[in-house]
């Protein structure tokens, strides 16, 4: 290879490696801020600030959703199967919100460790299948990866 071209090639490689390392360091330093939400285990461990706007994400615990009879108020529990965070919310829930499904709640933690949510989003997982397949899996008691529920 011509020395001038080799020099340019080295320059290009240096550029790519240098910018990758720089971006890697920046994202590593900001990793806490890049995460969209706190998992309940981190909230339970005291990793989430009290009285500040945060998001908590996890699965909605089965049989935890309680709706008020005369208002839009709803309470439920988010879990990552290690710890639990109770959530109170007044508003319309997304259609895909449901027990045993993922959700992200934004709001402030009060002194009792309850998240006073101002927004609740449903978190969809990567599983896509026709309803018949879902029914068949439900009957067999296995999930899509072949693990028993």
């Amino acid at each position: 290879m011509h020395p001038v071209r080799r020099q340019r090639l080295i320059l290009v490689l240096f550029l790519v490696v240098f910018s990758s390392v720089a971006a890697g360091l920046v994202t590593y330093a900001l990793r806490g801020n890049i995460n969209l939400f706190f998992p309940p285990a981190e909230v339970a461990a005291g990793g989430a600030p009290v009285g500040q706007s945060i998001r908590v994400g996890g699965m909605v615990l089965e049989d935890s959703v309680q709706r008020s009879q005369d208002s839009l108020e709803v309470s439920f529990t988010l879990t990552d199967y290690e710890a639990q965070v109770p959530v109170v919310y007044a508003g319309i829930l997304p259609d895909l919100f449901g027990e045993g499904q993922g959700a992200v709640a934004a709001g402030k933690l009060d002194e009792n460790g309850v998240l006073q949510a101002t927004e609740v989003l449903a978190k969809h997982d990567e599983n896509y299948m026709p309803p018949e397949v879902a029914e068949a899996l439900e009957k067999s008691g296995y999930d899509k990866k072949g693990q028993a529920r």
């Binding site: 995460n35 969209l36 939400f37 706190f38 994400g57 992200v104 978190k123 997982d125 990567e126």
Partner: peptide, 9 residues
């Protein structure tokens, strides 16, 4: 990271 977007299907 923890994101709202689901992982690849």
């Amino acid at each position: 990271w923890y994101s709202l977007h689901q992982p690849a299907s």
